[in-house]
Design a protein around this nucleic acid. Sequence first.
RNA 1: GGCGAGUUGGCGGAGUGGUUACGCAGCGGAUUGCAAAUCCGUGUACAGGAGUUCGAUUCUCCUACUCGCCUCCA
Length: 482
Amino acid sequence: MAIKLYNTKVRKRVEFSPIDENNVQMYVCGPTVYDRAHLGNARPVIVFDTLFRLLRYTYGADHVTYVRNFTDVDDKINATALARQQAGAAGTLEDLIAERSEETIGWYLEDMAALGALEPTAMPRATQYIAQMIAMIEDLIAKGHAYVAEGHALFRVRSFTEYGALSGRSVDDMIAGARVEVAPYKEDPMDFVLWKPSSDDQPGWDSPWGHGRPGWHIECSAMALDLLGDAFDIHGGGNDLTFPHHENEVAQSTCAGHGFANVWMHNEMLQVEGKKMSKSLGNFFTVRDLLEQGVAGEVIRLVFLMTHYRKPMDWTDAKRAEAQKMLTDWFDILRKHGYSPKTVAQLKASGDWAADIELMGVLGNDLNTPGALARMHVLAKARTTFGLVPLAHALETLGLVSDWAVLDVSASPRDEIPDWVTVVIEQLIARRGAARASKDWGEADRLRDLLSAAGVQVSDVAGTASWSPGQDFDPSVLEELK
RNA sequence: GGCGAGUUGGCGGAGUGGUUACGCAGCGGAUUGCAAAUCCGUGUACAGGAGUUCGAUUCUCCUACUCGCCUCCA
């Protein structure tokens, strides 16, 4: 199947053709591990996880290498570690930095797993690649693309004529824009740091330029080279990284004499209720915050998939509710038609587990997830277990089902409802049943209204009443009937 | 200031040089004691202006508005 991807480098969609079909390689810039992942951090994770899944479907699960790094050299991590040390925490600063990084990485993987993201093939950390970074910097200096000044190693931007090509800028224009930091030791205001000196309360490593630590950009060049080799297929990240981060990666790797990414992909930013998510606006929250509010990871993921990755995405509570309804409807249909771990295992074993070709084609068109979801609405009209396979396959492929035993994304899953609540509800339903049997409609409706006030939806299906907790489920209303 | 993205029906959101998705909400009907659920039916909307064209929402230009990046925030 042909996959088309929008390549930032050429500003258009082009047919994807991997260097090696048996080993498709993708590098995505991962998080700086200083704190819980906020909702914006989740966008590239979900976008490129979806791409990872599509590539695995197309080329085979064992033929895709996905590298996503952890940036664990960062002043914010240092600050936390230093604060802990000053508060009396045991251990060296290095220990405390490592501790903070490990803690954050654990949270990150846990939260992203809740969003249905597969773990990348490799998750290198900057601190594991200091030697490779130093080697690359030495190489750049030897080739005249970098220089040393006051304990810093700096990249000489003017030595790379293509600088700015990826992000569509020119060095002269940017300097004219006059928003560049001017450090006295720089030859040119646009030159960026490859290595910088560390003080005693900052982590550091010995280098030919003194005790210090790497600049931000060099880690990705070094890790991509080490793990993916001289050239690879796809490099992804948020579009805020296009400049300077990715531009600098290209400059470093190219000037060091290596190939780099063929296709550059950038996801657009996230907004919250129409505004940029920021602490100052008070609309800042983490993935964990949402999960703790009872929003299922699958619902969060679906909200992201509802917007194409190259468009700004607005997180709104209305969309959260819409996504929840979509998933609930699909899960209800599948459950009604016997979908369970056993059924799915049987379908897979019998070879009946197959994708909808049209849907995969839509998805392959630059990751058109909204288009794929539209197709799923059509697939959901099937009314047999077998006929629903394409829908089920799509849900699994898009990472919207992690466990076929749990087809429930309600904020109050049935198995979490206290026993006394169930007892009260079932008593009321029984009384209503008796009232209906004697055609006392007034009493029957009164009882249903009572349940309705507690957010319990009562339906009479085939002569018997069933109930389910709704969005506004609030058992406290039933307290006095206990 | 520099660079870039966007503006589609009540809402969300694809797509296309001509047959105008899809979902939600709404409306009408079936069904129901009444509901819910379900099913059937129902909406020519593409920011404004000019141009190219037999024909533009889709291509070009201009205008307005929104947003992002330029600050180790994805």
